[in-house]
Design a protein around this nucleic acid. Sequence first.
DNA 1: TATGAATGAGATTTCATTCAT
DNA 2: AATGAATGAAATCTCATTCAT
Lengths: 192, 192, 192, 192
Amino acid sequence: MEAAYRVISEKGYHRTRIEDIAQETGMAQGLFYRYFENKKDVFSQIIDMVIARISEGVMADAPGTSGTLEEYAEQMKRGLDNLFDILVEDPFISKLLFHEAQGIDEEMSRKAQKALDLFADFSSFYIKDGIAKGFLRPDIEIRETAYAFNAVVFEGARRIALSKDKGKAKKSWTKAILDLMIEGTAAPQAQK
Amino acid sequence: MEAAYRVISEKGYHRTRIEDIAQETGMAQGLFYRYFENKKDVFSQIIDMVIARISEGVMADAPGTSGTLEEYAEQMKRGLDNLFDILVEDPFISKLLFHEAQGIDEEMSRKAQKALDLFADFSSFYIKDGIAKGFLRPDIEIRETAYAFNAVVFEGARRIALSKDKGKAKKSWTKAILDLMIEGTAAPQAQK
Amino acid sequence: MEAAYRVISEKGYHRTRIEDIAQETGMAQGLFYRYFENKKDVFSQIIDMVIARISEGVMADAPGTSGTLEEYAEQMKRGLDNLFDILVEDPFISKLLFHEAQGIDEEMSRKAQKALDLFADFSSFYIKDGIAKGFLRPDIEIRETAYAFNAVVFEGARRIALSKDKGKAKKSWTKAILDLMIEGTAAPQAQK
Amino acid sequence: MEAAYRVISEKGYHRTRIEDIAQETGMAQGLFYRYFENKKDVFSQIIDMVIARISEGVMADAPGTSGTLEEYAEQMKRGLDNLFDILVEDPFISKLLFHEAQGIDEEMSRKAQKALDLFADFSSFYIKDGIAKGFLRPDIEIRETAYAFNAVVFEGARRIALSKDKGKAKKSWTKAILDLMIEGTAAPQAQK
DNA sequence: TATGAATGAGATTTCATTCAT
DNA sequence: AATGAATGAAATCTCATTCAT
């Protein structure tokens, strides 16, 4: 499984042959089929694993203990840091859920979709908490904002992973996202 | 080419056989190779076509004539509307650039990447204009914000295309994105 | 198809590889799949062909014009001769319907079964004609006798095909079957 | 061995995997090879077992004590009953000797053939006894009639096993076979 | 320009058999 | 005697590409 993860994350699903996976572990091809139904099956299990892994990492710290907007933003920043650390350390997670899962199967698409929806649920929960506490405007589109937040995070992680100076890139992205989420981009003096 | 576009957009690159494309046009397989080098070649040309098509559609209306933040926001709203119309009418554009292009080739990846960067350039240009005119804060991360904007737009388009009531979904997404971009989500009274 | 017939009749279904069939025609393996769905498909079509072939050969001469028991027996002898000629010339027909078709699939079994039932129908028809005309005893078990007749004919054909002196074997079997069918084996003086 | 018999009789030789047999006994695959050379070997031994089993059951009651044709026929009926009981209770015997043994190997074919010849020997012996005692016509083809008898018995057994009302089917088949063997199907008044 | 049969490399999958423990 | 993971040789099937016509 670890081997399959490594190979697929590097070459992509379609360019990975069973033999590549077998070779990675040093075992014979045939043995693969003792552990997995077929090629799709590994992929499916890898998705499950990734979902579990990230869920665990992300949903560890729940919202709720923030007393002011600053604290709320601070908490959000910590969450974002955490997310970026996970997603940048292993950029295949984003690639897997966003890209790879599409070109295979209706079933895989749905699986990845469900995972993304799960994250949106989590983000929604955060947003609702912010609204309930009066930190966020009550008229925002919760679901869409949550989806948008996720898309931005995954895109950010992808870009950070591609960049040379990851530390700097991460800082820029964290700032950009927090700015967008909290205050928007409008200049203060321009606000009526 | 049109036929290839149709088939690949429906089945995806990997599940599309040359014969499928030939069948779609009614011609014989062999003829395919008079028009295209090989399978990858069609895909490559399709990407080019899509980039050209969307570039044309999007970059038609340049920024510049906005005198107030309201006008700036209004212009942004029109651009967003325009984008959504294009991307929702043909959801394969998003799928192509974001998903399909990855699982094939280093070359295709880069090509799609370049297209996305192009859009980011365009968005950056918009943002810079906003800053120059004093509508947007001068300290925002321009490049990252542009990327984020794009990611959100593509995600929005994808979700709208999947939704049942597309009109309503489009409205929600337009509001969500403009809110994020302009004012952020923070409640006014919470702002210091 | 002819090639597949030849190879399978010689080596049997399970020991025949697609490549064997391809080699027999001199074509590449892949081409096989332009003409047949898969391996089972050829076999299925071969059964159909064999059924058609033998049906045609056998059911050509219908019963009905016999005026006496001798004529009836004579007609039966001719039919038997005809059958033996067909089945001995190509012993694979028996092997196919009786043996090969079993070890593959529920579907193939049923197909062969149906063919055998068809022959039994034909034999039944013959027997009923004999009864109607008063040549045969009205109290015999028609269906069972028809099945029995078929079994004996296929077994006879198989044995003739295996024997050295086919002409002699054929004569012996024809006599044995006609004896059984018409007069039984009881000695005349022993009959009460 | 019992387990192998059960599995193969149900799924057929080719669709039976060693693991299926192992699973049936609850033992590990590897242990199979302590008891049998290889896959073919089980099958071979199963044939031997079946031959022994049926030989024992059938050849128990020898002919010889019949004084009249009626007694002879009665004895034959008992033998047939006995055979049917054995073959219907375990229809795999017929399938094994007639069908399965063919699609595997020259060696298996010959083995099954030898078994069938053995039965023919036994039937021949019966027939010769009938002739010697004047119950059967001296001019019949002994060997062919014996083969024919066997073929009919196996076919009958197969059909009985497939039928719903086995008791009734057995009666019909017994009558049909005895009729054929003893008196034939010709109507008495039609005989010259 | 067009056809579509033919090619053949390559990928997945199965399973009898071996072997270390 | 027993286990069951491991092996790897086959066999089936797919499909991009070529080629004779």
